[in-house]
C-alpha cells in the first residue's frame, strides 16, 4: 500500500456526501456519548423527575388525569424541542472552544450541511426523551389515545425539523459573533410561554397571542394534546391544520435558515473569522 491513495479527486454524488456526513456526525455523537457515560445515563434518567413533579402536583391539587397529561405533554414537547433548538449552538460552541471545529470545516463536505448533521443525534434523542416522558405519564395512569400515536410522532418530527431550522439561524449567529446561547435561550424560554407548555394558548391575553403563532411549539403542543388525550375539546386549530401550518413553517424556515447560514459562512470566511 502507498500513502497516496486516490489517483484523482474522489468524486461523490451529492446524496453520498449527505449520507456520509450524517453518518460521520452521528458516529461523533455516539463516541461523545460514550466518552462520558455517567453524564449520558444521568441525562436520560433526569426525565423521570419532571414527570413525577407534575404527577404529584396534580395529585396535590386533585386535578384530573387529563389535566395532568395536558401539562405533561406540553412539558415533554418543550423538552424534546429544546434539544433540537439548543443542541446545535451547544455543539458549535463546544467544537469552537475545544478546537475541533476547524478540523470539521477542513473536511470535504458541504458546509451548509454541518448544522443539520451536528444536531441530528441530539434531535433524535430529544424526541425519544419526549416520548419516554409521555410513556411514563401513561404508566402513572395518565390517559393516552393509542391510535393517535403515529400522527403524534409525525407532528413531533415536524416540530423537530422546524426547531433545527431555527437552530441554523442561531448557528449563523455563532459563526459571526461567537456567542449564540443567549439568543437561543431567550427564544426557548419565550417559546415555552408562548407555546402554552402548561396551559392552552387561549389563556394568553389577546394582545400577545399573535406571537404564539410564530413559534412552532404552539402547533406541536396543540396537535399533540388533541391527538393523544382522549376527549380533548375540539377548540382552536385541528391537528391536520396544525400539521399543515407546521410543515409550511418548517419549509420556509429551513430554506431561510440554510440561506442565512450560507451567507454567514461566506462572510466569516471572507473576514477570516471562521472557527476563530
Amino acid at each position: 500500500m502507498t500513502s497516496v491513495y486516490p489517483a484523482t479527486v474522489n468524486k461523490r454524488s451529492r446524496f453520498t456526501k449527505v449520507v456520509d456526513t450524517l453518518e460521520a456526525y452521528i458516529r461523533i455523537d455516539l463516541v461523545e456519548e460514550r466518552m462520558f457515560p455517567a453524564s449520558t445515563i444521568m441525562r436520560y434518567l433526569a426525565v423521570v423527575f419532571p414527570v413525577l413533579l407534575y404527577y404529584f402536583q396534580s395529585t396535590f391539587l386533585t386535578i384530573s388525569d387529563e389535566l395532568f397529561m395536558t401539562m405533561l405533554i406540553g412539558a415533554a414537547v418543550i423538552a424534546g424541542l429544546q434539544d433540537a433548538l439548543t443542541g446545535l449552538t451547544g455543539r458549535l460552541n463546544f467544537a469552537m472552544e475545544r478546537g475541533t471545529l476547524e478540523t470539521y470545516l477542513v473536511e470535504p463536505v458541504p458546509w451548509a450541511l454541518i448544522p443539520v448533521a451536528m444536531n441530528i443525534w441530539r434531535s433524535v434523542t430529544g424526541a425519544l426523551l419526549a416520548c419516554v416522558m409521555v410513556a411514563l405519564g401513561w404508566l402513572l395512569g395518565g390517559p393516552v389515545h393509542a391510535p393517535g400515536i403515529p400522527a403524534a410522532l409525525l407532528v413531533l418530527f415536524l416540530g423537530i425539523l422546524a426547531c433545527n431550522a431555527l437552530g441554523s439561524f442561531a448557528a449563523s449567529f455563532i459563526l459571526l459573533f461567537k456567542r449564540g446561547e443567549p439568543v437561543v435561550m431567550l427564544y426557548s424560554l419565550a417559546a415555552s410561554v408562548l407555546g402554552g407548555a402548561l396551559f392552552p394558548i387561549e389563556v394568553l391575553p389577546v394582545w400577545i397571542r399573535w406571537a404564539s403563532y410564530l413559534v412552532p411549539h404552539s402547533y406541536v403542543i396543540a396537535a399533540e394534546r388533541r391527538l393523544l388525550i382522549p376527549g380533548t375539546p375540539a377548540e382552536g386549530l385541528s391537528p391536520l391544520a396544525a400539521t399543515l401550518i407546521l410543515a409550511g413553517f418548517t419549509l420556509v424556515t429551513f430554506v431561510a435558515g440554510m440561506f442565512v447560514f450560507d451567507r454567514s459562512l461566506r462572510l466569516a470566511r471572507r473576514l477570516g473569522i471562521l472557527s476563530i
Binding site: 463516541v31 475541533t100 478540523t103 473536511e107
Partner: peptide, 22 residues
C-alpha cells in the same frame, strides 16, 4: 485539541475517513 481526546486513535481516524468519503 483538533483530535477527539476521549475517542481512540482508531475512532478518530474512522470519523475523518468517513467524512472524506472513504
Amino acid at each position: 485539541r483538533s483530535l477527539l481526546m476521549r475517542a481512540t486513535s482508531k475512532e478518530n481516524l474512522q470519523l475523518h475517513g468517513r467524512l472524506q468519503g472513504m
